[in-house]
């Protein structure tokens, strides 16, 4: 209390070490999208929605890169890794987007993974009812997490809790998933109690956000699948493969 330096459980420090270099990810995805658009003929340019899909696809690549180089996950066999990622890819995308807005903290604008800002009202004016509903659910979650003062240490813990889901069946190494869940929950509780002693229910409130992230991500998948059936989503990419994986 009284300005003591923040204390991080050792495991939280280890999780932070797995975080990607944000500016590098930003530059990589922005460059990719610019090249992708420039390489297309005048009449094949991607529209806004198509660019957003490509951006989500590239963000998925960076999420897979983060996972496979992360503590615990890198110990798993590929089949287990695939099952875990196929289960939670849309939640990790949702959590990534929501956390970026929590940190961005600029009412009325959305910060993209490329570092660009988009006017929220502009998107809302172009989007249909379903996408608007989805965006407003995400923004409600952003507000809740902002008032909870979610920080990066807690964010990385939530990412691992989402990745190592106990809902995934037929894993060869389910024991590791259980152990990671236990360790991360303990580390998160320890961190929150030490660094936010005045927010006695913060740990519980953070965990209560996980089903909300799941609900938003499933709504996003439904929307994306509907748009895919309409032929509005660029195909032959990781995003489409993951979308189909759960339906297979």
């Amino acid at each position: 209390a009284g300005g003591s330096p923040p204390t991080f459980p050792h495991l939280v420090v280890e999780l932070l070490k797995c975080e990607p270099d944000e500016p590098q990810v930003q530059a990589k995805i922005l460059t990719y999208l610019q090249q992708e658009q420039a390489s297309r003929g005048k009449h094949e340019k991607l529209n806004t929605f198509g660019l957003m899909c490509k951006m989500a696809d590239q963000t998925l690549f960076s999420i897979v890169e983060w996972a496979r180089s992360s503590i615990f996950f890198r110990e798993l066999k590929v089949d287990d890794q695939m099952k875990l990622l196929q289960n939670c890819w849309s939640e990790l995308l949702t959590l990534d987007h929501v956390f970026r807005q929590v940190m961005h903290a600029k009412e009325g604008s959305i910060l993209l993974v490329t570092g660009q800002q988009v006017d929220y009202a502009l998107i809302a004016s172009q989007a249909g009812a379903t996408l608007n509903n989805l965006l407003s659910h995400a923004q409600e979650l952003v507000s809740k997490l902002r008032s909870l003062q979610l920080d990066q240490r807690e964010f990385v813990c939530l990412k691992f809790l989402v990745l190592f889901s106990l809902d995934v069946k037929n894993l060869e190494n389910f024991h590791l998933v259980e152990s990671v869940q236990e360790q991360i929950n303990a580390a998160l509780l320890d961190y929150v109690m030490c660094n936010y002693p005045q927010q006695t229910d913060k740990f519980g409130q953070l965990l209560l956000r996980l089903p909300e992230i799941r609900a938003i991500s499933l709504q996003a998948e439904e929307y994306l699948y509907y748009k895919h059936l309409n032929g509005d989503v660029p195909c032959n990419n990781l995003l489409i493969e993951m979308l189909h994986a759960k339906r297979a």
Binding site: S69, V78, Q86
Partner: peptide
Amino acid sequence: EPEEPSLLKKLLLAPANS
């Protein structure tokens, strides 16, 4: 018909620095 190779599997099996 051979199944389309999984992009996710390729990514997970790729060498670390690729």
